[in-house]
Amino acid sequence: MNIFRLAGDMTHLASVLVLLLKIHTIKSCAGVSLKTQELYAIVFATRYLDIFTSFYSIYNTLMKLVFLGSSFSIVLYMKYHKTVHRSYDREQDTFRHWFLVLPCLLLALLIHEKFTFLEVLWTFSLYLEAVAILPQLVLLQRTRNIDNLTGQYVFLLGGYRGLYILNWIYRYFTEPHFVHWITWISGLVQTLLYADFFFYYSQSWKNNKKLQLPA
């Protein structure tokens, strides 16, 4: 464990907790893409299957349970909570996210480290996580205004990805044979997707105006 990875995990934890708290306290999910949340639930469900078969550390297992629990409760809140589900912007959140699942599954069947059930699903979860934010970014572009909590959510997610890249660089130089091209490339693609959002987010902070994303 290194400081970059710990900071990355904490930032990731903060992003899901910020979102869960927002939805729980103001009983609204305006501006949040259910599709992205569903994709994240699938990402965690397919990545943390090893929670039953192998134990790495208390921290590792605890964080997996927290990520699984928070992502599924966000989806359940948005779909079934009597008040929250009414604030879900169904007409705007129209990204065909199921079209993302199949290519990621096919790619995982083609490119993986080991051809085992758990490993292919783990690789699938990496590819899916790389594109899971797309429905949320599209929704932000559509609704054009970013209420600051949703913006914070995406900002924290981007921060977690950036810290993970630093973590990989650190591990590459400190652990002799730490080479994981699949993780690195899908992680890089994911981080690049946030890049333009970061640009507009920083612009809005600099000019202290409401974040307007280009159409």
Binding site: H12, Y56, M63, K64, E113
Partner: peptide, 10 residues
């Protein structure tokens, strides 16, 4: 690193 194929990162 993947210790015995195990992924130690979240």
């Amino acid at each position: 690193g993947s210790i015995s194929g195990f992924h130690d990162e979240l």
